[in-house]
Computed example of a mutant assay.
Amino acid sequence: MGYASYCERGVTSMDDFLEEFFPVVYERKHKTKEDNYCKFDNQNLQLFTSSLYLAALVASFIASKVCTKHGRRLTMQAASIFFLVGVILNAAAVNIAMLIIGRILLGIGVGFANQAVPLFLSEIAPVHIRGALNILFQLDVTIGIFVANIVNYLVSNIHPWGWRLALGLAGVPATMLCLGSMVIAETPTSLIEREMLMEGLAMLKKIRGTDNVDAEYEEILHACEMARQLKQPCKNLMKRSRRPQLVIAIVMQVFQQFTGINAIMFYAPVLFQTIGFKNDASLLSAVITGIVNVLSTVVSVVLVDKVGRRFLLLEACGQMLITQVAIGGILLVNLKATNELGHGVAVWVVVLVCLFVSCFAWSWGPLGG
């Protein structure tokens, strides 16, 4: 999912791709007197980048119902099919319509996978490693982003079809998800939830490797029964006693997005080009941020149970504030409408971006959910 979501961020900085689908942006990019802050101001390009996320948002509501009614395994299979069809359309695109439709299908795949995979992991994991296993999901996403950066860097000099290769290689993780979802078994919780009690008990014994699962089975059975009795879950959430948990759940997710991580990670190659790096150098800088992202997520896995979630979240708030203000200040003072930053100043921007990404990756990224 990380690869599928982020491979196009490098593609949008490739001249061959821009020249074919967004010639206006291509012309702006190569006009030295064009305003640095307007080169990529194009509605079609914005639609290309945002359509995946909008589709994922809408699809997540449908995926929730599919997960409940048909199980986690089938939902992951559906996600992989949407991924594969979207990848084919994007890699073979000859016009903007094919690009957008492919991106929408990828977004539906992301929505379905983001709904099913974390749920699947939490339901099969033993209680004592459940938190770490869920963080590993976020770690895998960051690895996917890192691989996308590497691929974008390697194919950027393959003309004129390097961008097709970058988009098409998203089919590799999609195929792995498709094959994997055919091999894995359904979770005991999903089976019990759908009233397949004996199958759920047998599966619980299988994944735990013991017949002594009566206590856990009764706990799952009770939780499913309680959930089944809730006829109006949304109305129940609005009760006064539930409001603190509801507010925290919503606000945490909103603040996670308000940190600006998506703008930084998605537009990193474009940002680095704007401040003076050439195409290859900007993609390489994005690779560096990808490495920082992966390594810092590992830090979260190691430290979360030692120092606690609250400490990591609060520390990250201060670090992200300082780095964002520093980046904004440098660009405000040094980056005018038509100039480029000096090499030394540009390197400092990359360092500050890496510091920003690192603190997000060990805090709000894996812990915000």
Rank of each mutant, 00 (worst) to 15 (best):
H159W: 05
G329W: 15
Q138A: 14
L136N: 11
G168D: 14
L139R: 07
V304P: 00
A4M: 12
A55N: 08
R309L: 00
F311W: 00
G109C: 06
N334Q: 15
L341K: 06
K239C: 09
A268E: 03
F356Q: 01
A286K: 03
F311E: 02
L312F: 00
S80H: 07
I129T: 06
L169N: 10
Y26S: 08
I184F: 13
R208K: 05
T75S: 13
D214R: 01
G369N: 06
L271T: 06
W362G: 03
W364N: 04
A174S: 15
L237A: 10
N42S: 00
A125V: 07
V299F: 15
L52N: 06
T49L: 14
C234E: 12
V349D: 02
A55M: 09
T175Q: 11
N293E: 09
V307M: 00
A316H: 00
A174G: 14
A227R: 01
I261C: 02
Y153Q: 04
A166S: 12
E225P: 01
P173F: 14
G365D: 01
E20I: 04
H128E: 13
S296R: 09
T175M: 15
K29D: 01
V347A: 10
P160W: 07
P173C: 12
I261Y: 04
F21S: 01
V325A: 14
H222M: 13
V110Y: 03
D211V: 08
R228P: 10
L367S: 00
I101H: 10
L84E: 13
L341I: 07
N149M: 14
A92R: 06
P188M: 06
S5D: 10
V345C: 07
P244C: 11
Q43F: 02
W161M: 07
M238V: 12
D16P: 03
I81F: 13
L47A: 06
I220R: 03
T142M: 15
R243I: 15
F22L: 03
E340V: 13
I100L: 11
K33M: 10
Q115T: 14
F17A: 04
P233F: 11
N339C: 10
M198F: 13
L191E: 05
P269F: 04
L133M: 15
G276L: 05
T210H: 05
D15R: 03
A268Q: 01
L179G: 08
V213F: 03
A78H: 10
Q273P: 04
S300F: 06
G342W: 03
Q273R: 02
G162I: 05
G162C: 04
